Simulated scan of single mutants.
Amino acid sequence: MNNRIQKTLDERKIGDTKVELLTFPIGQLFEEKEKINRKILNVIYILCMKERPIPRIPFKDLQKCTDKIVLLFSDEVAEWALDINEKKIEIKRVAQTRFYKEYKKKNYNSFVKWRPDFDIPIKRSYALYDARKKNAEYIWLLDDDIIISQDNYFRAIRAMVGGKGIVGFHVTEYPDMSIMDHAKRIVDHHNARISMTGSCMFINVKKVRGYFPYVYNEDLFFFMQQPFQNVVSGGTIRQVERTSWTDFERIRHEQLGDFIYNVYKSRFLKLNTGMIDWKNEKKEQLEQLNRLYETVSDEMVKEAVGVAYEATKYIDIYEVEEFVNNCQFADWVYRL
């Protein structure tokens, strides 16, 4: 591993598995451990789904951190939420809002058809919109399957009070990674290289710009719209078990976002430099997927790689260029 990559990655051991946390140019670990006991969060937004169980962090614990909790559902509400009758907990059906319809119309891309119910970017963008309407300054966006320690929480609050715009976290157990990275881990025995995620994200609303694009990896693209010194990681957290490589419709849908982010990640790691030639990048990723398909022995992973290969062939370079232009990434993204 060259010196630049050593400065970029923070190696951790989770059980018997080594993972490398990508910490440059965004995701630097915030190490301040001083506890702040005062309540600063205005609203906690929890991204919920009808078919999923109640959020892993109990409401009674979350209510100690804020005066308002908003449960974001798409349209139909989960059974466990139907009996909630507390003033401090609001249930919002995002799909019934005008914001939802306008967002989908404005941000459509050709990969939406593979997973039309995918609404995480809409919920996150709605949370920002709603927070601004409420004149909220500090908010917490939380996926319903995330588990966070008290130390993580206090570190995030300290970073917020210290002036940071966003505190995300690195998910080390069952992290969301591209099928290409998953296959490389098996074939090439690479450690998992994990970027900071937005699945547990503290935001100073007044210090952020941009939006969450309607594509997989929308949290990473949101981070790339911010000044990088404003975005830090509060450490490592856990989420419930996932086996996303068994869901082929999900793999097809994720390829557009994975393709674009993999190109930028290679530059963050200094594996590639110079101006981006998207046509050539597509050719290179197809070659990598083809090599992995020919090499991997696990039949389920092999089939998943094949699905990713076919979906990547479908990517339209003009659509990619339009997407990148619309994101209006921060200047540092183009200087690396």
Rank of each mutant, 00 (worst) to 15 (best):
L22W: 07
V77H: 01
M224K: 02
N191H: 12
D151C: 02
E319S: 02
R267Q: 12
I40L: 08
R209Y: 03
L142Y: 00
K60C: 01
R98F: 03
W80L: 03
D16T: 12
A95F: 06
Y129P: 02
V320T: 05
E102N: 04
I194F: 02
H253Y: 13
P227L: 12
Q229D: 12
A159H: 08
I166P: 04
G15P: 05
F248I: 13
Y129G: 03
T246W: 13
F212P: 02
P58S: 06
S199N: 15
V307H: 11
E31P: 02
W140N: 09
S266W: 04
L21R: 12
E310W: 04
N107W: 10
G235R: 05
A330T: 00
A156Q: 11
S74M: 04
K283V: 15
N85Y: 08
W245D: 15
M49Q: 07
G162R: 08
G198P: 00
I194M: 12
I89W: 05
V187D: 10
I139H: 01
I44M: 09
V208I: 13
G165C: 06
T23C: 12
Y108G: 07
N107P: 00
N280V: 14
W332Y: 13
S110K: 13
R132H: 00
I40A: 08
I251W: 13
R238G: 01
T8N: 14
Q225I: 07
A183G: 11
I276F: 02
G15N: 13
D61C: 10
D258Y: 10
H190N: 14
Q6V: 15
Q63C: 01
L22K: 00
K302C: 14
L256I: 14
I69S: 00
N109A: 05
K18G: 02
L22M: 00
T66E: 11
D143V: 08
K283N: 05
K33S: 10
D75F: 01
I122K: 09
L142M: 07
N2E: 13
Y138P: 09
V171W: 01
T295N: 14
K35N: 10
T273N: 14
T8Q: 11
V161P: 10
D61S: 06
V240C: 07
M160N: 04
S233A: 10
K39C: 06
T312G: 00
E299I: 15
T17G: 01
C65P: 04
L71P: 11
A183R: 11
D83L: 08
E76N: 12
N152F: 10
Y153D: 04
D331K: 03
L72H: 06
Q285W: 06
G235N: 08
N2R: 15
E249Y: 09
Y45G: 05
A81H: 09
E173W: 09
D119V: 01
G210Y: 05
W278I: 11
Y216Q: 13
Q255C: 06
E173N: 15
I26V: 14
T236M: 14
L336A: 03
I317W: 07
D277T: 08
S149H: 03
I276V: 13
I26T: 08
V77K: 01
A308E: 12
S110V: 09
Y216F: 15
I69G: 09
R158W: 05
D298C: 13
V43C: 03
V232N: 07
E102W: 00
I57P: 02
W114P: 09
H182A: 15
F169T: 10
T8L: 12
R209F: 06
K106G: 09
